[in-house]
Design a protein around this nucleic acid. Structure first.
Length: 266
DNA sequence: CGGGCACCCTGGTGGC
DNA sequence: TGCCACCAGGGTGCCC
């Protein structure tokens, strides 16, 4: 499931290949993934336009078009954007560029959403980017110290911190040795600073490894990431803790499968 | 504010 | 082997 590192990986790859290329065709197979606009309108907004800029905001891809409008894509849990025809399954729409490249949007579960928007107000509720260096431990502590909710729910709340999903929340909490169920207001400043550092480090490491392919995530070339090989708790139920002699346990926190080590996360 | 839950959706899986 | 109920899961919205 694409989280910040996976979306960042796709962004960096696409950026190299589609900037300033004109869109010459859009073929829609399943318009359900395109929200708030008819298939005909969607085509009209894209054909003849160039993608002048590509950004990532949280788990969103933000394609700025030469018209000034924005193609906004959220991959949901099974969405993929793949360049080139490599026999993809679950294709929902295809964008063709003037140099012959084709960009395939694939999504088996169709939780992803594609929109054309005038501005970013639709994602204006998102919290700060965890990798934004201006974002300080002090601000992070201020955010969490008065909240009673479980720390894992908090760091996955996109309104409070943008881009962290289930995998990296579990991993960062393991690295910071914090029980995912711990009430946020019971975490000291020191621990909070440690947690923010852990979040940043795990996100950066994952970007370096090209993201985690625990489900069926693939990058813009249709290839898997490598980060799943380095995960310490996620999807390792019953396996040995890589830090203590304990065993990784799976519990449910906030209706989400949560992996942690009871031996060393307190 | 916080917790719980339903919904969106479908491939994969576990149980019978 | 075959069928089917059920689950996963990011985001959003609603209710208490």
């Amino acid at each position: 499931m694409p989280e910040l590192p996976e979306v960042e990986t796709i962004k960096r790859q696409l950026e190299k290949h589609i900037i300033n290329k004109a869109i010459i065709n859009v073929y829609i197979i399943k318009s359900k993934v395109i929200k708030g606009i008819s298939p005909a309108e969607f085509k009209k907004e894209l054909i003849g336009k160039k993608i002048v800029k590509l950004d990532r905001r949280a788990k969103y891809l933000v394609f700025t078009l030469s018209s000034g409008k924005i193609l906004l894509v959220h991959l949901g849990m099974s969405g993929a954007l793949i360049l080139g025809d490599i026999g993809q399954k679950y294709v929902k729409y295809i964008i063709t560029f003037n140099d012959g490249q084709k960009l395939y949007y694939c999504d088996s579960r169709m939780f992803g959403k594609t929109r054309i928007v005038d501005d970013l107000s639709i994602i204006g509720h998102l919290g700060p980017e965890p990798l934004e260096t201006k974002y300080s431990a002090k601000e992070f502590y201020q955010l969490i110290h008065s909240r009673k909710t479980k720390i894992k729910n908090l760091i996955m709340d996109q309104k409070l911190l943008a881009g962290v999903g289930n995998i990296y929340a579990c991993e960062a909490l393991f690295d910071a040795k914090i029980d995912p169920r711990k009430p946020a207001n019971k975490i000291s400043y020191k621990k909070a600073a440690l947690l923010l550092k852990a979040i940043r480090e795990v996100l950066i490491k994952s970007i370096k490894k090209g993201g985690s392919s625990v489900d069926r995530y693939v990058n813009a070339s249709g290839e898997k990431g490598q980060m799943q090989l380095h995960l310490k708790v996620y999807d390792r139920e019953g396996e040995k803790c890589r830090r203590c002699s304990g065993k990784v346990k799976r519990i449910v926190v906030g209706q989400r499968g949560t992996y942690y080590c009871p031996g060393c996360q307190k």
